[in-house]
Computed example of a mutant assay.
Amino acid sequence: MIPMYKIGVVGEKDAAVAFLSLGMTVKGVDTPEEAQRAIDEMAREGYGLIFVTETIAKEIDETIERYKNNFLPAIILIPGVNGSLGIGLQKIKNNVEKAVGVDILSKKEG
């Protein structure tokens, strides 16, 4: 039997509340300390995936990096209420380039 992991969202309250309708656990936070606690708590509780808004993630880079090499939880950065800061996409591009050996996601004129 395949284990079913919970999915959580950590971010500013206005952005995170939209995920409640999808059945995800939502932790609306106001400070970096609240975000760190929420992520650590979800990790201890066995969450498989934690979405974190970019606005919050840029304030807690140390916490995000701590989980980077762990299989679980996977932490994925998503745009906040003010749109994307480009942080999440850059992290994905860096990981793909590391795995493949070349940047295959950039649009290059040829």
Rank of each mutant, 00 (worst) to 15 (best):
M1C: 08
I2D: 02
I2A: 14
M4D: 03
M4W: 07
Y5Q: 03
K6C: 00
K6D: 05
K6A: 07
V9S: 03
V9I: 14
V10C: 11
V10F: 15
V10M: 07
V10Y: 08
E12H: 04
K13F: 05
K13R: 10
A16C: 13
V17F: 13
V17R: 04
V17A: 02
V17S: 10
V17K: 06
A18D: 08
A18H: 09
F19K: 07
F19S: 03
F19V: 01
S21K: 07
S21T: 04
S21I: 15
L22M: 12
G23V: 12
M24W: 15
M24C: 12
G28V: 04
G28H: 08
G28D: 06
V29Q: 00
D30H: 15
T31E: 05
P32I: 05
E34F: 14
A35K: 00
A35H: 00
A35M: 12
Q36K: 14
R37C: 02
R37M: 10
A38V: 05
I39V: 09
D40R: 14
D40Q: 12
E41S: 15
M42G: 05
M42S: 06
A43V: 12
A43Q: 06
R44K: 15
E45D: 11
E45G: 10
E45L: 15
G46F: 15
Y47W: 06
Y47A: 14
G48W: 13
L49E: 08
L49F: 11
I50F: 06
I50H: 00
I50K: 01
F51L: 15
F51M: 14
F51A: 05
T53Q: 01
E54L: 11
I56K: 00
A57M: 13
K58P: 01
K58H: 07
I60Y: 00
E62R: 14
E62P: 13
T63S: 08
T63Q: 05
E65G: 07
E65R: 12
E65H: 12
R66L: 13
Y67Q: 09
Y67C: 11
N69Y: 12
N70P: 07
N70I: 00
F71N: 02
F71Q: 06
P73V: 01
A74D: 03
I76P: 00
I76F: 08
L77E: 07
G80T: 09
V81E: 14
N82M: 06
N82Y: 05
G83W: 08
S84N: 03
L85K: 02
G86R: 08
G88I: 04
G88N: 10
G88S: 01
G88M: 10
Q90P: 14
Q90K: 10
K91M: 13
I92R: 12
K93I: 09
N94K: 09
N94W: 09
N94V: 03
N95L: 13
N95F: 12
V96H: 08
E97K: 15
E97S: 07
K98H: 10
A99V: 04
V100W: 11
V100H: 10
V100E: 01
V102C: 13
D103L: 08
D103E: 13
D103F: 12
L105T: 02
S106L: 13
S106Q: 09
K107V: 06
K108P: 05
E109D: 07
G110H: 14
